[in-house]
Computed example of a mutant assay.
Amino acid sequence: MIIQPYLHFEGRCEEAIEFYKQAVGATVEMLMRYRDSPEPPVTGCEPQGDYQEKIIHSSFRIGESVVNATDGFNSGQSSFKGFSLSLTVGSDAEANKRFDALAVGGQVTMPLSKTFFTSSFGMLTDKFGVNWMILTVPQ
C-alpha cells in the first residue's frame, strides 16, 4: 500500500510544478491536460472558466517520493490546511538551500534552526499555500 499526497492548485498547477522543479529538484513523471482526456469531466465536476489547457492530472518526483497534483476545479482558490509536506534532507547545507528556495514568495512560520531532534528544522508556507517542514536526517 502507498499513500501519496494529491495537491489541488485550483488553476496554478503548472506554475507550482515549475516552482518545485527549481526549489526541490522535482521531475515530472506524468502530465495530462483536460484537452487530452479521452472523456469530458463528469457532470457536476467541470472546472470553472477556460480549463482545456489546465492540468487534469500530474505526478512529479521529489527525491524518492511522488506527489500528484491537479488544477482541480480551476477555482483560483486553493486551500492546503491541516497537513504539511515534510522534506528530509541529508545535510544542513541542503536544508538551507531547499528551505530558502521554498520560502521565496511564501511565509516562514519557524526559521530553520537546530532543535533537540535534529541539526536543522524549520517550517514555512510556500507561495501556493502548501505547508512544508524541512529537516535534516538526525545524526
Rank of each mutant, 00 (worst) to 15 (best):
N74W: 09
V42Y: 07
F73T: 11
S78F: 05
K127L: 13
C45Q: 14
F117L: 11
K21G: 07
T115Y: 09
G82D: 04
P47F: 08
D50K: 01
A69M: 00
F73W: 05
F60M: 15
S91T: 15
R98L: 00
M123Q: 15
M32L: 06
G122F: 03
S91W: 08
K81Q: 11
Q22H: 10
S91E: 10
Q48K: 15
L112T: 11
T109E: 08
I56T: 13
S65N: 14
D100V: 04
R33N: 10
Q139Y: 01
R98G: 00
I17E: 06
N68T: 05
T27M: 03
S79Y: 01
R12C: 04
E46R: 13
V104G: 04
L85K: 04
M110L: 13
K114L: 08
Q52D: 13
F80V: 10
A95M: 09
M133K: 03
T70Y: 01
H8T: 14
L31E: 02
V104A: 11
N68K: 10
T70E: 04
V137A: 08
S120N: 13
Q77F: 11
A93M: 06
S79W: 01
G72P: 06
C13S: 09
Y6N: 02
F80C: 10
E39N: 11
S79P: 00
P5H: 10
G63Q: 05
G129Q: 12
V28I: 14
K81A: 04
G63D: 05
N96D: 14
K21Q: 15
E64L: 05
H57R: 04
G25E: 13
D126S: 02
F117Q: 10
G122E: 12
E53G: 01
A103P: 14
Q48Y: 05
E15C: 04
I2C: 03
S59K: 01
F117V: 12
V67G: 09
S59A: 02
A23C: 12
R98Q: 02
G76H: 01
A69G: 03
S119P: 04
C45L: 12
Y20D: 10
T125G: 01
R98D: 00
P40S: 03
F116M: 12
T43Y: 00
M30I: 06
Q107N: 06
G106T: 08
I17H: 06
T115L: 11
Q52I: 01
A93S: 13
T136D: 09
G122M: 09
A101T: 10
C13Q: 11
F128M: 13
L85H: 03
F9H: 14
G76P: 03
F9V: 14
V104P: 05
E39P: 02
A103W: 09
N131T: 04
A69D: 01
V66I: 15
G63E: 08
G122Y: 02
L102N: 12
V66P: 03
C45K: 07
G82R: 08
F83A: 00
R61C: 10
G82H: 07
F73L: 15
F83V: 02
P38H: 09
P5G: 09
V42F: 12
P5K: 10
D50I: 00
T109M: 09
K114C: 07
D50E: 12
N68R: 11
L112R: 07
D71F: 06
S86H: 10
R35P: 06
G44P: 05
A103N: 08
P38C: 07
G90P: 11
T109Y: 05
V137I: 15
S78P: 15
Q139E: 14
G44R: 05
E15D: 15
F9T: 14
E18K: 14
V104E: 15
E10T: 11
A26Q: 03
